[in-house]
Amino acid sequence: DAPDEFRDPLMDTLMTDPVRLPSGTIMDRSIILRHLLNSPTDPFNRQTLTESMLEPVPELKEQIQAWMR
């Protein structure tokens, strides 16, 4: 099983494109984008959230890719 820090906190699946929300939570980009289609909010604190506020986490993405090899 993947380490917890590699798993999306909402869907508990392996992240492939991790992004940091303004709240500091790291999620998979595809999952948070799907959530934003229904509700333009951070799913953990209900603060306003837009796609432009998502910050890529390239170092975590590299760690996940290395773990998958």
Rank of each mutant, 00 (worst) to 15 (best):
33 L>W: 05
37 L>Y: 11
35 H>R: 05
16 T>E: 12
26 I>A: 02
40 P>H: 12
3 P>T: 05
60 L>A: 01
52 S>M: 10
8 D>K: 06
35 H>D: 01
13 T>Q: 08
54 L>E: 00
49 L>K: 00
62 E>N: 11
19 V>N: 02
44 F>H: 03
52 S>N: 12
58 P>V: 10
9 P>D: 05
67 W>P: 02
54 L>P: 00
17 D>N: 08
13 T>G: 06
14 L>C: 08
57 V>D: 07
4 D>M: 15
53 M>K: 05
9 P>L: 05
56 P>C: 09
64 I>T: 00
40 P>D: 11
1 D>K: 15
51 E>K: 10
43 P>C: 06
11 M>Y: 11
35 H>N: 04
4 D>H: 15
66 A>V: 11
7 R>Y: 12
37 L>K: 14
69 R>M: 14
34 R>Q: 14
24 G>N: 05
50 T>L: 11
34 R>A: 15
1 D>W: 14
53 M>N: 06
61 K>M: 09
23 S>H: 05
16 T>W: 12
51 E>Q: 09
65 Q>C: 12
35 H>A: 06
9 P>C: 08
34 R>E: 12
30 S>P: 12
21 L>T: 04
47 Q>K: 10
60 L>Q: 01
37 L>Q: 13
59 E>A: 10
65 Q>H: 13
5 E>Q: 12
6 F>N: 01
45 N>I: 06
8 D>M: 03
8 D>Y: 03
25 T>I: 15
5 E>N: 13
25 T>R: 14
59 E>G: 11
25 T>Q: 12
52 S>L: 10
6 F>V: 02
8 D>V: 02
54 L>T: 01
34 R>V: 11
12 D>P: 03
1 D>Q: 14
48 T>R: 14
25 T>H: 14
61 K>C: 08
24 G>E: 01
68 M>D: 06
59 E>Q: 12
10 L>M: 10
51 E>H: 09
18 P>D: 00
50 T>P: 03
43 P>L: 03
49 L>V: 07
65 Q>F: 13
54 L>R: 00
28 D>E: 11
50 T>G: 06
10 L>I: 11
34 R>T: 12
24 G>P: 01
66 A>P: 01
38 N>I: 14
6 F>L: 06
58 P>S: 09
19 V>F: 03
32 I>A: 05
23 S>W: 06
58 P>G: 07
3 P>V: 05
12 D>N: 15
48 T>I: 12
60 L>E: 00
39 S>A: 08
29 R>C: 08
6 F>S: 02
27 M>Y: 05
45 N>D: 10
42 D>A: 02
13 T>F: 08
67 W>T: 02
50 T>R: 09
51 E>A: 14
18 P>H: 03
58 P>D: 09
31 I>K: 03
50 T>D: 14
48 T>E: 13
20 R>D: 00
42 D>M: 01
40 P>A: 14
29 R>G: 04
42 D>F: 04
